[in-house]
Each structure stands twice: as structure tokens, then as C-alpha cells.
Amino acid sequence: MDQMTKEAIRYLGYGKHAVDEKTLALISDSFRNLEDAADKRSIYRIFDFQQIADDRLKIGETEVQSKSLGRNLRGCSGIVLFGATLGTAVDRLITRTSLTDMAAAVVLQACAAAVLEEYCDECQAEIGRILGQEGLYLRPRFSPGYGDFDICFQEPLMRMLDCAKTIGLTMTDSYMMTPTKSVTAVIGASKTKENCHTKGCEVCDKKDCIYRRNVPVT
């Protein structure tokens, strides 16, 4: 079983339970359909970063208040703002599928999330190679909505990346992204290499890591 299939199963919430053959077939079909539909696009820009306090940060000219993000970025000297999308055709594919087969649509949603995550990992690895030439190392992606990093900060991130023009990514008044299979994130850049899991906190076993996203905010 390849890693993408394992990721889709994780998103479906199977945990350690066995996956039936019908679901595996749906996963396989979904990945094939997504390969045809996805129009992957990404953008990143590098900004100056200043940590004013544990929970107060300045990214470019934008001030952010978040203790969990401050924890993640501690020791960083620069910030990468990142955005990525699978495009509108994936949204249309999921909508069409949900009209005729809800089970298949649920699997398609999970597979799309896995495809997006893998694409973001690939993009971050390339950014890491570029910044590595300057002696910088990247922290895990940290998106608005994680911890106490309020979802409202989606708006300045997208504006600073000019997402609408660069990758066709927009946002509703309730901070939902269009296309829906999209992501924005902050990535810290530090001169110190940390052993942070590429796939992020959800699949990392290091529960006491100070950079962990889902550490309860106190």
C-alpha cells in the first residue's frame, strides 16, 4: 500500500481498522480521477519576521497574535508565506460525485486532501532546498485555524501573497477558501535545524515537541 493511499485512509478515519476492498477500489478510482482534474498551483513569498512577545508576531507589516504560532516560530529569523490549490475542477468533480454517490464523494474528499498534502510537501521541500543554500531550515507548515492562530488571519496572508492573481485562490466573508481544496500557511525559517516531522504534527509521535501545533493553549 503506497503512502498516498495510507494518507487517504487516515483522512477517512479508519485508524488501525482494516479497510475493505470496496473502499480501496474507491480510493484507487478517486486518485485516477483527481489526477485528471487537478490543476495544482502554488505561490510563496519571503517576509521579514519579528517576535515581539511569546504571543505577538510581526510578519512584514502585519501583526499577528497567537501563542501557538509564536511557539512554532520561536528562534526563526524569516518567514515564508505559502499558498496552494488543486483548482476549481476538483471542486466540481466532488460536487458532481456527491449528487450520485455520497460514499464515493466522501472517499474523493479524503483523497483530494491527501493529494493536496503531498503537493504541499513537495513544494515545501523545494522551498527548503532553495533556502538551504542560504543556511536556513524550515519549520512545519502552520495554517490559520491551528491552535489559537485565528482563521481571520487567512485574509492578510492571502492578500500578502496576492493569491487571487497568482493562483486563482479567493476567500469568502466567512474565511472559507475557493477552491475549497486549497491551503495557506506560515513556514518559519531558522538557522537552527529542528527535527520536525515533514508530514506535520498529526502524524508525528513526538508529543512533547515545543513546536507541536495541537498542544493545548494555556
Rank of each mutant, 00 (worst) to 15 (best):
N72M: 14
L108S: 04
T85S: 15
S77W: 01
L108K: 02
Q124N: 14
D91K: 07
T62C: 12
F149M: 00
T166R: 15
T88P: 07
L131G: 00
A113Y: 05
S190F: 10
L161T: 03
L136E: 02
R71Y: 06
Q51F: 02
I187L: 15
F142Q: 04
S66P: 11
T23A: 11
G83S: 08
T85K: 02
A8Q: 02
I167W: 10
M176E: 14
D20A: 03
D208P: 10
E134F: 04
E7S: 08
R92P: 02
R45K: 15
Y44S: 14
A164D: 08
A37C: 05
D29N: 14
I130W: 01
M102R: 12
R139N: 06
F153G: 01
I9M: 02
V107P: 09
L136Y: 02
Y146W: 11
G87R: 04
D29S: 15
D36F: 05
S30Y: 00
E21N: 06
C196S: 12
I210L: 09
S42R: 04
Q109I: 00
D162R: 13
I187P: 12
I127H: 08
K165F: 02
M4W: 11
A38E: 14
P140K: 01
A84E: 07
S174W: 04
L93I: 01
V186T: 07
E194M: 13
I27N: 08
T178L: 13
L157T: 00
I27E: 14
L136F: 01
P140I: 00
L131P: 05
L69F: 09
V90N: 06
V183C: 08
L161S: 10
E117C: 05
P179E: 11
Q51W: 03
D2H: 07
E126Y: 01
E194N: 09
I27W: 02
I27T: 06
D121F: 01
L99N: 07
E7K: 03
A53Q: 07
K181H: 14
C120G: 09
I59L: 13
K181P: 07
T192E: 13
A189P: 04
K206D: 13
K199V: 06
S28F: 03
F149Y: 13
E194L: 11
G75P: 10
D36C: 05
G128A: 13
D121G: 09
L138G: 03
G188D: 10
D48Q: 10
T95G: 03
R32S: 15
A89T: 06
T172Y: 05
T23C: 13
D208K: 11
L86F: 00
K22T: 09
E134L: 06
E61F: 06
E118A: 06
T23V: 15
M1P: 08
I210R: 14
M176D: 10
I127F: 05
Y137I: 00
C163H: 04
A105E: 08
A18T: 13
G13Y: 03
G83D: 12
R71W: 10
L34V: 03
Y14H: 12
S68Q: 09
R141M: 04
P216C: 05
Q154I: 04
T166I: 01
I46Q: 13
H17F: 02
G13C: 04
I167V: 12
R159M: 06
R92H: 11
D173L: 07
P140S: 10
V80N: 05
G145W: 00
Q109Y: 04
G135D: 11
M176R: 14
S98F: 00
V80I: 15
M176L: 15
